[in-house]
Amino acid sequence: MQLQLEYFLLLAAALFCIGIYGLITSRNAVRVLMSIELLLNAVNLNLMGFSNFLDPDTIRGQVFTVFVITVAAAEAAVGLAIILAIYRNRETIDMEQFNLLKW
């Protein structure tokens, strides 16, 4: 018995679904951001799995992962800056309270 590609892909799929669940049900804006990080990590796990099992000579997936990590860090910084700004104005980070813009 050896480690199979499928194990990693299934793990990534599970993490992705947990991230989606957190994304939709969270009321705390910071937690929504954390769920997005979970989603990106699921993608990374996918890429790394493919990179090791399908593409071990050129490991393009690892390079892709490094880019995803970079972008995720930038996205987190921007997201938290926006959350800080909205907290200063509204004194809350409850997603249900953000309803100034409604049709």
Partner: peptide, 26 residues
């Protein structure tokens, strides 16, 4: 898991950037 996948550099980057930067930022 990345180490199990023969990716030492990315595993280190994961710790440094995600745990060291993103998580601390959060």
């Amino acid at each position: 898991l990345y180490i199990l996948l023969n990716a030492d550099f990315v595993a280190a980057a994961q710790i440094l950037i995600y745990v060291g930067a993103v998580n601390v930022l959060i």
